[in-house]
């Protein structure tokens, strides 16, 4: 079986496993939705007059939701011993990582769409005018977070305090994603076109290439015991 097909099989298996434990997804959704509600109650009128603050809130919530999602990505496999099963597969460690990345992209996109729906209601976010622009930024951000998060989740899976380490490592690593993503979302909300946010988009795309380079060089050592 090829590299991509193996990764897809792993992602399919992960999604099936995750949706059988729906209470975990539900806990991420509960956190995300309640955070939006808290922001909405706290900011009240100012959300209506300054909708750009919704951009920052949205990315902060998505980032913390992703931390919750990544804590189970590789860590659960390591804790339950199923990682050894993945190691018996005739595939490169990178195929396993890609499987986890695809799974994270799908899971985070699902969370994102629910977040956006609630943001439209409670944070006065108008997405209809520039829906494609928003979609490009958010999907790029989700892909970036998934690449970085899955890699770090693999990196810390054998550690004692993996949840703490993941949060500590993910934040600085994801700064090059969060800053341009927040700026680009803010600019789009303020009426900028996709051409105006090209530098931010370039940064988001460049981040993917950096992470791919790092993982290609190092991930095989991550799975070694």
């Amino acid at each position: 079986m090829g590299f991509i097909s193996t990764a897809l099989r792993i992602a399919e298996k992960d999604l099936k496993t995750e949706f059988r434990r729906f209470y975990e997804i539900l806990s991420i959704l509960t956190f995300s939705v309640s955070s939006i509600l808290v922001c909405s109650f706290a900011w009240g009128e100012s959300v209506v007059t300054r909708p750009e603050i919704a951009a920052a809130a949205l990315w902060v919530i998505l980032f913390f939701a992703s931390v919750l999602a990544f804590t189970t990505s590789f860590a659960r496999e390591a804790d339950r011993g199923t990682l050894s099963g993945l190691k018996t597969l005739p595939c490169s460690p990178l195929a396993i990582l890609l499987g986890k990345i695809i799974y994270s992209i799908i899971l985070l996109s699902f969370i994102l769409f629910i977040l956006l729906a609630f943001s439209m209601v409670f944070l006065n976010l108008t997405l209809t005018e520039k829906f494609t622009d928003f979609l490009i930024i958010f999907l790029l951000g989700v892909v970036d977070l998934s690449f970085a998060g899955s890699f770090i989740s693999g990196l810390v899976m054998f550690s004692e305090g993996k949840t703490l380490l993941l949060s500590f490592l993910l934040f600085p690593v994801c700064m090059p994603v969060l800053i341009p993503a927040v700026l680009a979302t803010e600019n789009i909300i303020n009426g900028a076109s996709i051409g105006n946010i090209a530098p931010e988009l370039k940064l988001l795309i460049a981040f993917i290439f950096v992470i791919i380079s790092v993982t290609t060089l190092t991930f095989k050592f991550v799975l070694e015991e």
Binding site: M1, T6, K13, S84, T88, L89
Partner: peptide, 29 residues
């Protein structure tokens, strides 16, 4: 690894999946 079968001390199967789903996953790969 294509020519090795390894049964560990712990099970490598996924608790949430049925035996059939677990085996189909490995069979496909």
């Amino acid at each position: 690894r294509k020519r090795i079968g390894f049964v560990g001390h712990e099970s490598f199967l996924y608790d949430e999946l049925t035996i059939k789903e677990n085996l189909f996953f490995y069979a496909k790969v």
